[in-house]
């Protein structure tokens, strides 16, 4: 398998601020790779470093094995779908999509044909003559996608591309993006702060916090076996138990994560107080307090619910408690 993008100890500092701090990462060709993290975690800066809009303060980025610190954006085999789409307002949809080909001196007839094809691919035929201002948010997004893909990039970078869309459209686009990626076989690097999006779409996920990568792995691994309390908390709001409690429970002194859906009401278990109940539809979320530690539990619909303020007994399967390394979030 070829490495499409490699970060070699890459840092990007702005004065004292370490937006990206000594990141090592390899993205394989053909992968759908997600960079996940809260805002300011460095994920977008990493994307901009690959695109060439920013230059690393230290380290080297390789694109298909080629170091590219000295290669400007316009000569990198990557294209970007911007968060605000960045469609050229003075050009119609066709000329927006054909822009890269126009710069590359592709003949007018040929580039227009290619643009129409790309628009068909993103399910937007017949819109070529409109101005971007006459399109809806979802349509602009598709144009931005077509404009990037028409250049046949080796890697497609997507910067929170679904962030501005409403929920329904977003779910639809998630499916479409995924199938598009399979169909084209292009490497996708996808930046998002939405863990659901990252987990459902990506082949692999890198979780960012404060300029560093916390964990890289397949979605199941990230979800089931978080390596740091930050990952446990950020990806799926897991309960993070402190080392003191974990030591009493298991004998090991380490942080541990415990998924809310793994916590059961179970007579004979640990005593916990019910602090709050929140009805979420299919499940009810209980906020509990056990030995002074706040815990959440998800109770499926249909089960009997305890009273607020009452004391209940809770338990979980042994393998549900996942011990984590010492790296802090």
């Amino acid at each position: 398998m070829t490495t499409a993008i490699a970060f070699r100890r890459v840092s990007r500092h702005y004065g004292e601020v370490r937006a990206v701090d000594a990141v090592d990462l390899e993205v394989t060709e053909g992968e759908f790779f997600a960079m996940l993290g809260p805002s300011g975690s460095g994920k977008t800066t990493c994307l901009r470093l690959v695109a060439g809009f920013e230059r690393p303060t230290a380290g080297e980025i390789e694109i298909f094995g080629q170091p590219c610190s000295k290669v400007p954006p316009y000569r990198r085999p990557v294209n970007t779908v911007f968060q605000d789409y960045a469609l050229f307002p003075h050009l119609n949809v066709r000329d927006n999509v054909a822009y890269g080909l126009m710069i590359a001196r592709v003949g007018k007839a040929e580039r227009h044909r290619a643009a129409e094809q790309a628009l068909e691919m993103v399910a937007l035929p017949g819109y070529a003559d409109r101005k971007p201002s006459a399109l809806s948010g979802g349509q602009r997004q598709r144009v931005a996608l077509a404009r990037a893909l028409v250049n046949k990039p080796k890697v497609l970078l997507l910067d929170e591309p679904l962030g501005a869309l409403d929920l329904k459209l977003r779910e639809q686009m998630q499916v479409e993006l995924k199938s598009l990626q399979r169909q084209l076989g292009i490497t996708f690097i996808f930046v998002t702060h939405d863990q659901g999006e990252a987990l459902s779409m990506a082949d692999r996920v890198a979780v960012f916090n404060e300029g560093r990568i916390q964990q890289v792995g397949r979605p199941e691994d990230i979800y089931d076996r978080p390596e740091t309390p930050f990952v446990a908390d950020f990806v799926g709001s897991s309960n993070v138990l402190p080392p003191e409690i974990v030591e009493r429970l298991t004998g090991h002194r380490a942080h541990a994560s415990l998924r809310p859906e793994a916590v059961r009401l179970q007579p004979g278990g640990h005593d916990a107080q019910v602090v709050e109940l929140a009805f979420l539809g299919a499940v009810t979320r209980l906020t509990l307090k056990m030995e002074g530690q706040a815990l959440t539990a998800l109770v499926p619909k249909g089960q009997a619910l305890p009273e607020k303020g009452s004391t209940v007994q809770i338990g979980w399967d042994n393998d549900a408690l996942h011990l984590m390394g010492s790296r802090d979030g």
């Binding site: 400007p72 990198r76 250049n151």
Partner: peptide
């Protein structure tokens, strides 16, 4: 389709070279 010019890693002329310089600095 052939790779587009955006994918050639070397500058294409003096204008490109000057543009590179402005991007780097």
């Amino acid at each position: 389709m052939a790779e587009t010019a955006a994918h050639h890693p070397a500058p294409r002329g003096p204008v490109d070279r000057l543009s590179d310089l402005l991007w780097r600095r």
